[in-house]
Amino acid sequence: MRTCEEYEALISAFIDGALADEDRAELMAHMAECPACQAYFDDQIAIHDALADMEVKAPEGFADRVMAQVRQESRQAPVSEKQEKKTVPFPLWRRYAAMAACCAIVAIAGFWAFNGGQLGTGNVAADTALMDSRSAPVVENQENDAAESSTPADAAVADAVGDAPLSDEQPVQEAPADAPVPETDDRAAEGQDAGEPETFSVTTADSETDRVDSAENRGDSSPEQYAAKDSFVSTAYATAGTVTLTTDSALAEAWVAENLGQTWEAGASYALTVEQFDQVQALLEANGESFLLAMPMEEEAPVSDSLDDDTEETEEALESSEEPIEPADDIPAEEEEEAPVFYVLQAAP
């Protein structure tokens, strides 16, 4: 014998046409003897009838307004201000995981500086730190401007569609030694051991956030996506070397064709100005596209015109991170004064 509450569930299934014949017979028999359930049934039928015809029409011109916005967005491939404000393409924990990765690497670099770390072991350690941090920390407090203005619809896009391209096997992006960016070649020739793989770290600028809670580690098995805010270039550890944004997004492909007049080829790199870089990054973020943001930690900074606001603190951080890798007598400190950054868009290999 079922309880009345259980019969309510049967009534619900009955209304939805999902009740098996034998259950229906039992329900009817019960209602014949139970006025409470009969009343419940009658009321639910009345509610159902009232609800069933409640679809409302969209206001006049609604579709036109939506399409006006869509066309505006598709005309200006770079995202509109509105989009930038409203979109958070990735779960925030990923951003903070990326930030934590960077902090870990900076900390390790500092540790080497104090311990006279040796070339060779550093890269391994940095890689390990990065790998660990990818699956670990999550900032609990996600209240920031982006979160305030985000819409779950956007998040849903990221969740529903943004988990594709970059594979787990390439969380750390190596810059191709022969990348078609002339400055990169120069840098490799003069400052780097040509055969030494460059270590890249994921970086982000959410430096105001420092609370990390590993309890929220989701151990997400989906491919990693790292994103950074536009301001990341102003952080101390992002002022040296090359910032590389790797993606296989069709949007990036279209952007390159339209703005650089170049053909998108897997593995190819495209030198960008900081403005262009920000534009591409914002475009990808606004559309929930996957990309990997990476920069080298231990290389001599190549010449560039993109940044000139380095602080002394920046230079110190740079020096300390370089010491373990480059013997002190190799690079006079003066050469690092400008510590500029290259911005490279790379088509995922």
Binding site: V66, E73, T151, G162, A250, A286
Partner: peptide, 20 residues
Amino acid sequence: AGDIAQEAFLAAWRGLPSFR
């Protein structure tokens, strides 16, 4: 409702290239 519905359609437009 108009704002929400519009936001949903725009999110769809932005997400469509990666909609699987």
